[in-house]
């Protein structure tokens, strides 16, 4: 199952990159994606015995528009600070740590990337369940981890502790 989906993804990738649709190139693409999938299909999908992978992917797709909106907000925030003449009075940087209740590595990585993309915060370090975050002001630091942890817990169907 994972072997077939890896092959299909690789073959679609081949089609986009080669841009030739004659028999010779299609056959070459099929052979090479089969070989690569045979060698490394366990790299693309790890935790292979997990159930509900399709639903997870769909819910993650629904999460992306919210993330794009957050990126807009955060870039406007940073650009406003950067162009502000009295920028040094506006910022009050600090490093904060908090504990997450997310269990799986994928969920933690998604949370770390989301924190980096939301306004005024950047993930510095993740050690087990302790997140170290650099925040540009105390207001943005107070909003951590906020609704993001909820959303990610919902996507990966993790129990809220």
């Amino acid at each position: 199952m994972y072997f077939i989906s890896t092959t299909l993804i690789l073959f679609a990738f081949w089609l986009v990159l080669s841009g030739k649709f004659d028999l010779f190139h299609l056959a070459l693409g099929a052979i090479s994606s089969l070989v690569v999938a045979w060698m490394s299909s366990d790299l693309l999908f790890f935790e292979q015995n997990k159930k509900g992978r399709t639903g997870e992917a769909l819910r993650f797709l629904a999460y992306i528009p919210w993330l794009v909106a957050e990126i807009f907000k955060s870039t406007i925030h940073v650009a406003w600070l950067a162009l502000h003449p009295a920028m040094r009075e506006r910022i009050d940087p600090r490093i904060v740590t908090f504990k997450t209740r997310l269990k799986s590595d994928v969920a933690r990585a998604a949370l770390a990337n989301s924190i980096t993309l939301t306004p005024g915060t950047i993930t510095v370090r993740v050690e087990e369940d302790v997140f170290t975050v650099h925040a540009l002001s105390d207001k943005t630091a107070a909003g951590l981890p906020g609704g993001m942890e909820e959303r990610i817990a919902r996507i990966f169907r993790e129990e809220a502790a």
């Binding site: 990126i71 807009f72 940073v78 650009a79 162009l83 940087p93 950047i122 650099h134």
Partner: peptide, 25 residues
């Protein structure tokens, strides 16, 4: 704006805010 932020922010961590977010959007 974010390249200006890269020059103006006071320390390495806050410069990274400008560099990382500006590039993405």
């Amino acid at each position: 704006a974010t390249t200006l932020g890269l020059l103006r922010f006071p320390d390495f961590y806050s410069r990274m805010h400008a560099a990382g977010k500006g590039d993405t959007l």
